[in-house]
Design a protein around this nucleic acid. Structure first.
Lengths: 233, 233
DNA sequence: GGTTGTGAACAAATTCACAGCG
DNA sequence: CGCTGTGAATTTGTTCACAACC
């Protein structure tokens, strides 16, 4: 995945109850993983968790967990661990997940429908509120329980009326930048792009790329390493 | 997305025509992006490209492009740039993309079908050769042009007979680790996991996680930053 | 002139190791 | 004693800036 932030701009506003430190990007990237693991832990009934145990669940090491949380504040208890519920609250607050962020999916192909259908989005704070396409033959197609495909031409109205802040691009690469432009014009604050092309927007819009094939290609690199080792050894 | 390598083990085997440097992880993560951009450039008819121009396409800066390529060897020409075709060849070689890597998709839900259907995989070196599920009512369902859903119980046979090296997990979180275990037993070398849970395998199997909701949550963090800035300013 | 390739400077991230507290 | 929180050390990654070369 390629992260691409347009003009990160100023440091965060330190509030009385949060430390002045800027939370490092690497830490931000891990907070969602911790959050997910903590959800599982909470469901299992535990009230507290040690950095060691959480590290194991998240697939990182314990020092990293403690360091990461230290950027959010001192929320653990020495000799005991972290209070699960309180930690969840703090992470959610840091991530801006104190309220839902409605999402629009552009592109009603296989991937777009899969994303729109994916219950995990809504459960974890990102309800998919619209799915649009430019192909008239798809208009009205039912997607999941509550959605049907709407015309891309109405994107501006849809975004403003439903207070949508996040656009997900699941179109062919050839039209992705055009779609991004329309989403930006419509007023979304963030874009998650699944099309295999780098899209850009104005400085105030956050863009993240997810290229699924790149992930496989990266795996392939480390694969080859080992084969080389066998050949050489 | 969380990268998780189990036992990176030894340094690469330096071959006569490749430099002794170990290619840094950060560079490996970018090579697929460059490769994709170079494909677009080649299709546009250009024979050479400067680090400046490629940086623009890939959404990074030019120094980084040059540094990254310097780990692969000195393949540019001063005053001119890089030969597109030759560079593509070298990156593909580094990534181990000199041959295809057949893929099995586990989970014939929306996401699994979308992935199996996605032409981009096959075009870029990862032909999806099987899709399996545990739900008998899905067996035989047509997916894309050449695939139909097969029983998960046959995974061992399928993997060995079709020489599959990569498993993609597109199942609910609750069964993902079990699926990973079965894929490892069946002999895959790499796993790409879309289920929102960390899965692990033996040291020789590479695992990468892609959590789509985490990507949105990360965007949400940077969103909130700006709102904080407005409040404070 | 133009562009690469790369040491050196800098910045970010990780890990260590242990003091501090419950 | 157990576990967090964090400075310090280390490693990794990025950017600068310019010599080398076409």
């Amino acid at each position: 995945m390629l992260e691409q932030r347009n003009g990160r701009s100023a440091p965060p506003a330190p509030t009385p109850d949060s430390p002045a430190h800027r939370v490092p990007d690497a830490t931000v990237n891990r907070l969602p993983i911790y959050l997910r693991c903590l959800g599982d832990v909470a469901r299992s009934g535990a009230n507290t968790i040690s950095s060691e145990r959480l590290a194991e669940l998240a697939g990182v090491n314990a020092a990293k967990v403690r360091k990461d949380f230290s950027y959010l504040g001192s929320y653990g208890t020495r000799g005991v661990g972290y209070d699960v519920e309180f930690l969840v609250f703090q992470i959610r607050r840091q991530l801006g997940l104190t309220h839902d962020w409605p999402v629009i999916v552009v592109g009603a192909g296989n991937l777009g429908r899969a994303l729109a259908n994916n219950g995990g989005f809504g459960e974890r704070g990102f309800p998919v509120t619209a799915i649009v396409d430019t192909d008239p033959s798809k208009y009205g197609d039912q997607v999941g329980e509550d959605l049907s495909v709407e015309p891309m031409a109405e994107v501006a109205t849809i975004v403003s009326e439903r207070d949508i802040r996040v656009g997900v691009i699941a179109t062919p690469a050839s039209v992705a930048q055009g779609v991004a432009d329309q989403l930006c014009d419509a007023g979304v604050a963030s874009i998650l792009n699944f099309a295999p092309v780098v899209v850009t927007g104005p400085a105030h819009v956050r863009v993240r790329q997810v290229d699924l094939v790149s992930e496989l290609q990266i795996l392939s690199f480390y694969e080859e390493q080992d084969e080389g080792r066998l050949d050489a050894g």
